[in-house]
Design a protein around this nucleic acid. Structure first.
Length: 294
DNA sequence: CCACGCTCCTGCGCGC
DNA sequence: TGCGCGCAGGAGCGTG
């Protein structure tokens, strides 16, 4: 079996489409579900680090630390993947271009294949052209690691309710779109899903968070959850696979109502979608469907 | 404490 | 044809 998960769009697709491959929460969840059955219970033989200069330096002693360890569990926290070993854990983030694949262990490495973890006759290969990802080691409970300890609510957890969101927003002057993307408040909502969820909830992205009523918070929670869940449900069928199988736009692309659609007609009301920059990030919205009130 | 802006890096599209 | 510029992005971190 050959898994090819995460980011790997290239070539003939228009620029707009490449962004669809960003490892957002649904993609990370898909990677987790794809890898778990194969990896859990397996023992690591060797580890090769070709390029340690990721977001943070890959620990120089990683190969020594991992050799001989057995994988006992895989978990996700936000967009972080955690590989629990019989002793210690690996914390991994795919950044914006990272991927993890399982390939036969004779597969030659290409330019951006930075880390290989050999497990039997299989290779768990970390690839990351832009090197915004990370792979770290911890001996402590990984959830107490500085990168994970301060993370916010899991958007798909039952605790993420309209009431919980309202409590978060009430204390913040930030625009709701910026708050939505603040991983110390809510994890896993990236730039694409932030715009999409706000459209779904009919909330204007620049609305000050503390102006949101409880009812609008409920709507937003539902929008975030349905957007993420739909993407996870579609997770197995990657954009590339979808494009390959019918030669047209990818599944996720067809789901987009606003993201990347500046100037195009709103799929609901026909008004031209607008683009603005918030916190250095492109933001898309329909000026008619999305309001600051109501 | 909070909010904002900078930063890492590479591939791609566009303009000349 | 080829080259160089600008943009895209997650999220930690520094600054005000």
């Amino acid at each position: 079996m050959l898994w090819n998960l995460g980011t790997r769009i290239k070539g003939a697709l228009p620029n707009r489409l490449k962004e669809d491959a960003l490892p957002e929460l649904p993609e990370v969840e898909t990677v987790l579900r794809g890898l778990s059955p194969t990896l859990v219970g397996q023992t690591i033989n060797t580890v090769t680090v070709r390029q340690p200069a990721l977001r943070f330096p890959v620990p120089i002693e990683l190969p020594t630390l991992l050799a001989g360890r057995t994988i006992i569990d895989l978990q996700r926290r936000g967009k972080y993947l955690i590989i629990f070993l019989d002793s210690g854990s690996v914390i991994c983030h795919l950044g914006m271009s990272g991927s993890l694949q399982l390939v036969p262990n004779s597969t030659p490495a290409s330019r951006h294949d930075h880390i290989d973890i050999t497990i039997g006759n299989t290779l768990l290969r970390y690839r990351d052209p832009r090197r915004f990802g990370l792979m770290l080691w911890t001996e402590e409970d990984p959830m107490t690691h500085p990168l994970l300890a301060a993370l916010g609510l899991e958007p798909l957890a039952p605790q993420f309710t309209g009431h919980a969101l309202h409590r978060l927003t009430a204390a913040s002057k930030s625009p709701i779109k910026t708050l939505l993307m603040d991983s110390h408040k809510i994890v896993g909502v990236g730039n694409i899903y932030a715009s999409e969820s706000l459209f779904q909830a009919r909330i204007h992205p620049t609305t000050p968070a503390r102006d949101l009523t409880p009812a609008r918070c409920c709507r937003l929670v539902e929008a975030v959850q349905s957007t993420l869940s739909a993407a996870i449900a579609a997770g197995g069928s990657s954009l590339r696979d979808f494009v390959h199988s019918n030669g047209k736009l990818g599944y996720f692309q067809q789901q987009y109502f606003v993201y990347g659609r500046a100037g195009a007609a709103c799929r609901v009301c026909g008004t031209a979608i607008e683009r603005l920059v918030m916190a250095q990030r492109a933001t898309y919205f329909c000026p008619r469907c999305q309001r600051r009130r109501g």
